[in-house]
Write a protein that binds this DNA or RNA. Structure first.
Lengths: 201, 201
DNA sequence: ACTGTTCTAGAGCGACTGTTCTAGTATGTG
DNA sequence: CACATACTAGAACAGTCGCTCTAGAACAGT
């Protein structure tokens, strides 16, 4: 990837926000990590740090939206699928050395009561996740109301467990939270995914 | 409360961290909010901002440990108790204008991969919550393993739902997450709380 | 080849950061 | 009373913050 492009700047910003959050993210770090000089950065993002964070958050949000459908694809029972998703997340987190897996909720927690534009960016990411998740589970045979409830519960539990797992350096929170949510939905069948269907949903 | 005491400084710091998080918390804000001059602050907390945050976090942690037992006291069934706890949290959050209810996980998310001493402080708070919660639910008749699993699931789900609720300005995440966790534990009886027992556990 | 636009490049700005320092004021203890 | 300790008070420091500015390089269309 060529250095100094819009894309590299956003990639660097997301990577830094995953580790440091938003407030502790500095322009100097973005310069160093992206290879783009300050002038270029302000050329591409004239509104500065806030704009970069907003766009980086939204950018990374759409990437994460594809994760749940991917890990759920082979599952034919909702409870088992949820358990599998959390177990997968636990393994990923452990092998990543308990690094932050998702900057969205970290940043959302920081700014939800202090930076309105960023809060709105995070809200749109959450909103998209819920909409896409509802559509996905509906396509797998769940009623829309149930589908939305399932998605919200999974995201809340997963994000909370991410924080605790990172803090305690332990997979246990992810596994326990996964089992707790899954139990409610045991025995609910999932329709198989149509062959060759888009993974976008 | 006399201004400039250790206590007022910690109180001010927690209040500020609830809104701004750790990185965006400044000494100047602590001075303004606590009424204590810089000299006094560094007299009481010679290690500076990090020490204040650590102690404030631990301080507030013990306060929150009493919340779940309080709202669960009258409940005699685990699933219903969990639903009641999340519904209570949703009402509290709405009437507080979706202000942050718990600085611990917000700060934990910020620092878990970048500030080791603060991470350890947050980890000890989470650890205490789990220990106290396990003891509490065990005293209400649950096996210790189940008790610990329930506590971890509740905390993860609650903290994740806090972030989403604050970001979306909606009670829905708290209610949905509560229902999802509660369903797994429906039908499990809780022993009544012994009359006049300590609320500390 | 010429001209206008897009982008690179980084020195420098004022504001603010956490922290240190010296001085002075209370508050005990003998 | 004297004297040490505990605390108040805020000016000042080096460093960093996000950001602006001017100047030149690269590339487009004609």
């Amino acid at each position: 990837m060529a250095r100094g492009t819009r894309e590299t700047i956003l990639t660097a910003a997301i990577e830094l926000m995953r580790v440091h959050g938003y407030a502790a993210l500095s322009m100097k770090q973005i310069v160093a990590a992206s290879g783009a000089p300050i002038g270029s950065i302000y050329h591409h993002f004239p509104e500065g740090k806030g704009q970069i964070a907003r766009e980086a958050l939204v950018n990374s949000g759409v990437a994460y939206a594809a994760v749940i459908p991917m890990v759920m694809a082979e599952q034919l029972e909702l409870g088992a699928g949820i358990r599998a998703a959390f177990a997968q997340a636990a393994d990923d987190m452990e092998s990543a050395g308990y690094a932050n897996m998702c900057p969205v909720s970290t940043v959302a927690g920081e700014v939800a009561n202090s930076d309105e534009p960023l809060r709105l960016a995070a809200a749109s990411v959450f909103g998209d996740w819920i909409t896409l998740g509802r559509m996905y589970f509906h396509s797998r045979g769940l009623a829309e109301d149930l589908a939305e409830e399932v998605v919200i519960a999974i995201i809340c539990s997963l994000e909370g467990a991410f924080v605790m797992a990172r803090t305690l350096r332990s997979k246990t929170p992810l596994l326990a939270a996964g089992r707790a949510v899954a139990g409610t939905y045991d025995g609910i069948a999932l329709l198989p995914v149509p062959a060759g269907s888009q993974t976008l949903l």
